[in-house]
Design a protein around this nucleic acid. Structure first.
Length: 435
RNA sequence: GCGAAAUUGGAGAAGCGGUUAACUCACUUGGCUGUGAACCAAGCAUUCACCGGUUCGAUCCCGGUAUUUCGCCCCA
């Protein structure tokens, strides 16, 4: 027996159904917003992530699966999908076609060397979108609302949007300098991580959870006082538009997010269940001004996107019972009572399948009782019994497992019979609804 | 990377330094030779994550390894 590699998990059976359901729902919403699918490689050159995600991020510093291939090239299993998608947009010169904006959605596995926990794995799946070529703050609103509707579609009721504005380059550079001056005075009393953050990316000190440091952060200069007019104006437009869309938000001036490429609008959606359990952030994203250029694309093209962890969503949805019953029932279960009838049973199954009936055949040769049990276990609507008499008369017994009735039907008329029964069922149930 | 706990059949799960590893469910077979339940009978862990140590003897105690879970860190 082999153990799973630490932090990996099998997604199988009903768990796989859940994942499909989540992904299909997300894809559907993205397509309604006119986003197109992008599938990029799982491996990229390491430098791509160093440049985009940023050397100061924890992802690059300690969480990447990086290795040398046989040609001594440094390869990394993607820790997130934005960088690869942007690279692909740049490499394929999509921006040169003047088709701005490029609206991309993506789903797939990502890899981070982290401590695994419930709903958090080293190989995990992300869904996300990127809108590249953003020239209006309302694009940011579109991205946020797409995210919001996706979560609503999945059944999350009480969502809270947490939002902040990091400003454009000019705003941020001004602000960073002021912050550096401020924190420099307090640095001695701050935690080791913060000392490191001070050197790498001073903004991330704002995120620190250490209570003592939070006190210092409280009195730190605020980004809102250093935003350029343009950044401030854009952010206000975004907020106003969110009001109009009825998306409730809370401004958190310390929301920074761990990836270095964000600028201007950054956001997260937080969820609290009806039972009052706070699950924290379900997804996050934001706007980026320089990322495209950083990856070798044209200057002054901006983008916006967000990503959702499928594992995290599935874990929260399971915990909060947000999954509807997923129907994996069977229409027909064919039970040949003797192995010599198995080929006939397969023939019947094929005909049923071609006519749209999800069918399975018992080829394990149990007794009739055992086969019936199996049919029930598979939650089949009908059990089709094929025995000596039926073979002789070229017929089959159709047993309705919910009604506990059965009839012997000529094989030629089997499909017609089932069609009729299905119609009856439908009209029957419709009748009930009308009354 | 740091700290803590856990790991017993297909599943849930008791158990104790000493040879039948309880109980429940599921499953298999038969009673019932072509019909779902119930009942009855029998079967279902040469083994308690793995490796080593202590011991006359280890599922139990000790050490190591693996994985999982929780917290930190972090992230979405």
């Amino acid at each position: 027996m082999f153990n799973l590699v630490k932090g990996t998990h099998d997604v199988i059976l009903s768990e796989a159904d859940k994942y499909s359901y989540i992904e299909q729902t997300l894809i559907q919403v993205a397509e309604y917003f006119n986003y197109k699918e992008f599938r990029t490689p799982i491996m990229e050159y390491s430098e791509l992530f160093q440049r985009s995600v940023g050397d100061s991020s924890d992802i690059v510093r300690k969480e990447m699966y990086t290795f040398l291939d046989k040609g001594d090239r440094s390869i990394t299993l993607r820790p997130e999908l934005t960088a690869g998608v942007i690279r692909s947009i740049v490499n394929n010169k999509l921006l040169a076609l003047g088709d701005i904006p490029i609206k991309a959605y993506y789903v797939g596995p990502c890899f981070r060397y982290e401590r695994p926990q419930q709903g958090r794995y080293r190989q995990f799946n992300q869904f996300g979108i990127e809108c590249v070529g953003v020239v209006s703050p309302y694009r940011d609103v579109e991205v946020i609302s797409l995210c919001y509707f996706s979560l609503k579609m999945l059944g999350f009721k009480s969502l809270k949007l947490v939002i902040n504005c990091l400003g454009d380059d000019e705003s941020r550079n001004n602000y960073k300098e002021v912050l550096r001056n401020y924190f420099e005075k307090h640095l001695d009393s701050m935690c080791g991580d913060c000392k490191e953050r001070f050197k790498l990316n001073v903004l991330r000190i704002l995120d620190c959870k250490d209570p003592a440091d939070q006190e210092i952060v409280k009195n730190a200069p605020k980004i809102e006082d250093y935003l350029t007019e343009k950044s401030k104006d854009n952010f206000n437009k975004v907020l106003k538009s969110l009001d109009e869309l009825g998306i409730e938000y809370e401004i958190d001036r310390n929301l920074v997010r761990g990836l270095d490429y964000y600028s201007d609008v950054v956001f997260e959606f937080h969820y609290t269940s009806s039972k009052g359990i706070n699950y924290g952030a379900l997804c996050g994203g934001g706007h980026y001004n320089k990322l495209i250029q950083e990856i070798g694309g044209p200057k002054d093209i901006e983008g916006c996107g967000f990503a959702i962890g499928i594992e995290r969503i599935a874990s929260v949805m399971s915990d909060d019972s947000l999954f509807d019953e997923i129907d994996d029932s069977l229409d027909c279960y064919i039970m040949p009572l003797d192995i010599s009838y198995q080929d006939k049973a397969l023939e019947i199954a094929t005909s049923l399948r071609l006519n749209g009936y999800k069918s399975d055949v018992n080829l394990e040769g149990k007794g009739l009782k055992g086969m019936l049990k199996k049919a029930i276990k598979l939650s089949s609507k009908y059990a089709l019994i094929l025995g000596e008499d039926e073979i002789k008369n070229n017929s089959i017994v159709v047993k309705d497992l919910s009604k506990e009735t059965q009839e012997s039907i000529e094989l030629d008329k089997l499909i017609d019979y089932l069609d009729e029964k299905e119609n009856e069922n439908h009209s029957c149930s419709c009748h009930h609804h009308e009354e």
